[in-house]
Amino acid sequence: MEYVLIIITAIFVNNIVLAQFLGICPFLGVSKKVETALGMGAAVIFVMVLATTVTWLVQTYILGPLGLDFLRTLAFILIIAGLVQMVEIILKKIAPALYQALGIFLPLITTNCAVLGIALLTIQNGYDLGKSVVFATATAIGFTFALVLFAGIREQMETSDIPEGLKGTPIALITAGLLAMAFMGFSGLV
């Protein structure tokens, strides 16, 4: 039951993009087409789950016992950067098709604050390994969900008549605001 609660909260109520404002850069940057949004979403799910698992292990078995908590930010960002690089090399070798699909999105993920954010949040929330993995997976699914929804709206918007000053990013932000308002409807769920 606790796992179900974590999943629903992470996807709908506390949606990472629309309620917690993490990962806004890719949310605005790669949301012009549903197809690219799906690609980015898949890459984020993959990296976020992997990164959260590794950082949790490092925090619990290395940083925590040695009293090196102040190195957390530094260690985590290096782990994520290294991990992304490694995933890229491995994918290129063993799954070229998947690499083709995710390729351009992978390097962008290092600077996606959602990945570092979730790694830090799981530690702050004091989750155990199982909960951390579920939390990371659900959050990444929530990210993909918001991204694909938003891309769908932006595809429709391409043909509409928008006032000169609002063209581009401003109208995208206002649209995101309305989407966030819709998501607030979920807040009574949990």
């Binding site: 000053g165 609002l166 109208i171 932000l173 206002i174 995101a176 308002m181 998501f183 607030m184």
Partner: peptide, 22 residues
Amino acid sequence: LIFVLAPGAFIVFGFLMAIAQK
């Protein structure tokens, strides 16, 4: 209240950016 909550952030930012562009 909406301006302190999440949607308000997006909407204020959108309009500010539109003004800056103009």
